[in-house]
């Protein structure tokens, strides 16, 4: 366990999971060599794994790299030690979000994914129009980027013309069970 005083039992559980996942890594570097976004990463995957092995979970989770990861699973597929590197990246993101350590730019991804899950919690299925609205509003309040706010604005009419927008969105009948699943999983 890292001796960070801000850690809650939830942090400790995720760190424990990450250390378990990282245990067999012998630093061959194949994960980093095959990573399609390795060149954009400040700390490449094998180094993140080493940090976890050495007990520096918080340091690893503060790396911008974890928000560059595209979850393509190439690292996991190629690991000679069967280390689920993609699951380690997930654990680092979960840890980072609990800590609130993402930078404003990385935070865009966090905002998007949070808005996505919030949408599912309420409806059971994705309402794309609402997701885009929420993401754009919250991302704008986060970084005040005007280009980001209007990016893809021209796509809207083209999508409507192609019948690709579901304006009302779908809802499942048993939304209460979805809410309860979220509550249990957030404990």
């Amino acid at each position: 366990m890292s001796n960070e005083s801000t850690n809650t039992p939830k942090h400790d559980a995720i760190e424990q999971m990450a250390r378990e996942l990282a245990r067999d890594c012998y630093q061959c570097g194949k994960c980093s060599a095959g990573c399609p976004v390795g060149e954009r990463m400040d700390v490449v995957p094998n180094r993140l794994i080493r940090l976890i092995q050495l007990g520096h979970m918080a340091k690893a989770a503060a790396a911008g790299a974890i928000w560059e990861c595209v979850s393509c699973q190439t690292c996991t597929a190629r690991c000679p030690q069967n280390v689920d590197c993609a699951a380690i990246m997930d654990a680092l993101r979960e840890f980072s979000v609990l800590r609130g350590t993402a930078s404003p730019e990385q935070n865009r991804t966090v905002i998007f994914q949070r808005a996505f899950l919030d949408n599912i919690r309420r409806y059971g299925r994705l309402n794309e129009v609402e997701l885009i609205g929420r993401f754009k509003t919250k991302a704008f309040l986060n970084d005040l980027s005007i280009p980001m706010l209007f990016k893809d604005a021209l796509l809207g009419p083209q999508m409507i013309r192609r019948g690709k927008f579901h304006l009302r969105g779908e809802k499942v009948r048993d939304r209460d069970v979805v809410t309860r699943i979220f509550e249990k999983c957030n404990q």
């Binding site: 995720i14 979850s71 699951a87 994914q113 949070r114």
Partner: peptide, 12 residues
């Protein structure tokens, strides 16, 4: 749950 779930909440 797609990428959002596996990135933010391993139980979900």
């Amino acid at each position: 749950g797609a990428t959002a779930a596996h990135s933010l909440n391993h139980k979900l």
